[in-house]
Amino acid sequence: MDNLLGQYAPKIDRDQGTTDPRPYALGYTEREFQRLELQGALIHDLTEEFLRRAGIGPGMRVLDIGCGVGDVSLLAGKLVGPSGRVLGVDRSAGAVDIAERRATESGQCYWTRFTTGELDTFSPDETFDAVIGRLVLMYLPDPAATLRRLVGFLRPGGIVAFQEMAMPLTRSFPEAPLFSKCRGWIIETIERAGFEVDMGGRLPMVFAGAGLPAPQMNSAGLAGSGPDSPVYDYVAETLRSLMPMAEAVGAATATEMRVDTLAERLRSEAVEQQMCIMLPPLVGAWANTQG
């Protein structure tokens, strides 16, 4: 994993051009961008199935908010095909650069495009058939207000589809000390930083607050066990990205985490105890606008 992700010094960056004063909990380092690609690969199938169930299909025009390095946009691009169009928007220019490169490499650059912008000021000059996002509402100060604004960019009857985590449902069986600590560090850091750890559970409230009908919903999750599971690296890299924020908010210290050896220690614990690690369920919600 170290060869894949490289060595980068994490830092907390304050977002520029946004009315939200909170820095993004996971930061904008190159290593975090590569963690996002790892995450995207792990939950690719779960999100693809969600988008299909929400109704994303050939020829549609789709807006992906908080697109990061482009995983969800590229998934949507595969579903809409060359006759459709996907626009991904993210506040991080670095993430957008990576997304554009990946679109070119995948052959989707003609219909899957990206732009840098803030969700509270972004105003496209076109309408869409769907607005989608994954793991983005949890970081917004007023997700219902953001959704309400974005609905204005949809055609009548357009699709609103979001997939978010229910972090408190993360667990292992049997329970084990190190994994329990990791779960606590992640949840406590995100909570203390001012973000929502159970946005998956709150999605019906958010949709209602945005003036949307009660959504259809599903839940899907990733689990791992044994020596070859990727979940140990994923947990460790998540904590590597969170570490500056964890220290800033007093949730944990680098000395406690020992993040450079964390993945191997998690692996050893899991193998020794024949554990099943269940990562946070991804809760999906989708609805059509009125009209």
Rank of each mutant, 00 (worst) to 15 (best):
S225H: 13
D90S: 11
R149F: 01
A161V: 08
D120R: 06
G226K: 09
E37N: 12
L63K: 06
A236W: 10
L135Y: 13
A214M: 11
G88Q: 02
L140W: 10
E256T: 12
G94Y: 08
L5M: 15
E49S: 14
A76I: 01
M217I: 12
G17N: 14
M257Y: 04
E105D: 10
V271G: 03
M278R: 05
G77F: 02
E49L: 13
I159H: 00
V259A: 13
P244R: 01
A270P: 07
E188Y: 05
P174A: 05
E237W: 04
V206I: 14
G158R: 07
S180F: 06
G117F: 01
L42Y: 02
G94N: 11
P227V: 07
V283M: 12
G94P: 08
A99P: 04
I56P: 08
G40E: 10
A166D: 14
T29C: 10
E48R: 15
L242A: 07
D13L: 12
L5G: 00
K78R: 15
M138C: 12
V72I: 15
W185G: 00
D142E: 14
V69N: 02
P141T: 07
E30P: 08
G209I: 09
I12G: 03
I43A: 13
M167R: 13
A176P: 08
T127K: 10
L5C: 04
G77Q: 02
G184Y: 06
S229D: 09
L4K: 10
L79P: 07
L147T: 05
E188G: 08
R155G: 03
M60A: 09
G158T: 06
C67G: 09
G27R: 06
G250F: 06
V86I: 09
E48C: 11
G226E: 08
E105V: 10
A193Q: 01
E188L: 10
T255H: 12
M245T: 15
G94I: 04
P141D: 05
V231E: 03
I56E: 04
R155V: 15
K78N: 15
M60L: 14
A176Y: 05
L46Y: 00
M205Y: 13
S172T: 14
D260W: 04
P177M: 05
L38E: 02
T253Q: 07
I65G: 03
L38V: 11
L178C: 03
G291H: 06
G55T: 11
R265Q: 14
L5V: 13
Q274P: 00
Y110L: 11
E269I: 04
L63S: 04
E237N: 10
M165R: 06
D45R: 14
P244S: 02
R91F: 09
T127H: 05
L154D: 01
F207W: 09
